[in-house]
Structures are given as structure tokens and as C-alpha cells.
């Protein structure tokens, strides 16, 4: 007897078959002793379960009783998750992941801030102001990081006015 026939027989036992289908099963039962034996067993089991269940009464309305059980299951599951011992490597990972995320976020904020600051035209450009009619020119050697600002004023007039004994004052 294959599984499909067994399921069909169980459906018949539960009263789920009607009309033509029920007639087919009854014809099959009439000529197959194995099928009759299985049906008898199913009916006995069904009767035993019904008897057992009849003695039980719920202490509270059905919905309330099951919701209480459901709440207790969830509470125990949560507690188990909290207290579950974890290997030290996993524990370290659990700490490093949020810490790494925080560090990455801070780094991102810092880099974006720096980028914005550098792109700010008011900040990016170096500013120079020459006074007293001074002509200046600026040269920058990027490879050596050297900036030269050459001033014509007070060249050979006041600033570098030679004093006896000191060539630079």
C-alpha cells in the first residue's frame, strides 16, 4: 500500500471524503484486508485520543491560556539568547564589529569634513597681501614643498639698509 492510499484512507477515517471518492475507498476496503486492518487501527487511535482529551479541561479561556504559553516560550528564548556562552573569538568579533563600525563612521565623518573644508574656496586659496607698494612674486616648488615669496620692497632701501658691522640689519 503506497503513501497516497494510506492518506486517502486516513481522510476517509476523518470523514473528509464524500460521494464518489468515499465510494471508491469503500469498494477498495471490501476487497483489501490490509486496508481494513489499517482503517481499524486508525479508528482505534482516534477513539483513544478522543477519550484522553475529554478528561482535560483548560483552567482559563482557550485563547488566553495559549497566549500565556506563547509569552513564556518567548521569554525563555530571549533569556537563553542573552546568556548563551559564546566562544571568545565570537565574543571579540561581537565587540569589534560595532566598534569597527563606529570607528569607520567617525573616519568617514572626518574625511568628508576634511574634503569639504579643502573644497571650500574661501579656505583653499592661499592669501597674500603686500603693503607699502611692495611688488612681490611667489614661486612654489611642489616637489620639495618650498614656497618663495620675493619682495622688492624694501629691497636696498630701508629693510636691508646696511649698518656698519652688520650686513643684514
Amino acid at each position: 500500500m503506497n503513501e497516497e492510499l494510506q492518506l486517502k484512507l486516513q481522510a476517509y477515517c476523518d470523514g473528509e471524503l464524500a460521494g464518489h471518492n468515499a465510494g471508491e475507498v469503500e469498494a477498495w476496503l471490501a476487497k483489501d484486508p490490509d486496508a481494513r486492518a489499517l482503517l481499524a487501527e486508525l479508528q482505534n487511535t482516534r477513539a483513544a485520543l478522543r477519550q484522553f482529551g475529554d478528561d482535560l479541561t483548560l483552567p482559563a479561556p482557550r485563547d488566553f491560556y495559549w497566549s500565556k504559553i506563547q509569552r513564556e516560550i518567548r521569554r525563555q528564548e530571549n533569556r537563553r539568547t542573552d546568556e548563551l556562552p559564546v566562544p571568545w573569538l565570537a565574543a571579540l568579533r561581537r565587540f569589534l564589529m560595532p566598534a569597527g563600525a563606529v570607528a569607520a563612521a567617525l573616519l568617514g565623518v572626518f574625511l568628508v569634513g576634511e574634503q569639504l573644508r579643502q573644497n571650500d574656496p574661501s579656505r583653499a586659496a592661499d592669501m597674500e597681501v603686500a603693503f607699502s607698494d611692495s611688488d612681490t612674486f611667489t614661486y612654489r616648488d611642489f616637489s620639495s614643498g618650498t614656497t618663495l615669496v620675493w619682495l622688492s620692497y624694501p629691497a636696498e632701501i630701508e629693510f636691508a639698509e646696511p649698518d656698519p658691522g652688520d650686513i643684514l640689519d
Binding site: 597674500e128 603686500a130 622688492s152 636696498e156
Partner: peptide
């Protein structure tokens, strides 16, 4: 840059470590 009490030049520069700013002028 202040020469003889007067401000001769003023500039704002980005000066990372190792970079150098040179102010210069002719002398006698």
C-alpha cells in the same frame, strides 16, 4: 613680515610638516 615696525607683507599659507616658506628680498 615686519620691517622697521611696519608690516611689509602678510600671507596665509598651508604649511605641512617639512614644507618651508621663504620670504626674501635683495640686499646691498
Amino acid at each position: 613680515l615686519i620691517g622697521k615696525g611696519e608690516q611689509v607683507w602678510k600671507g596665509t599659507k598651508l604649511l605641512p610638516k617639512g614644507d618651508i616658506l621663504v620670504l626674501g628680498g635683495n640686499a646691498p
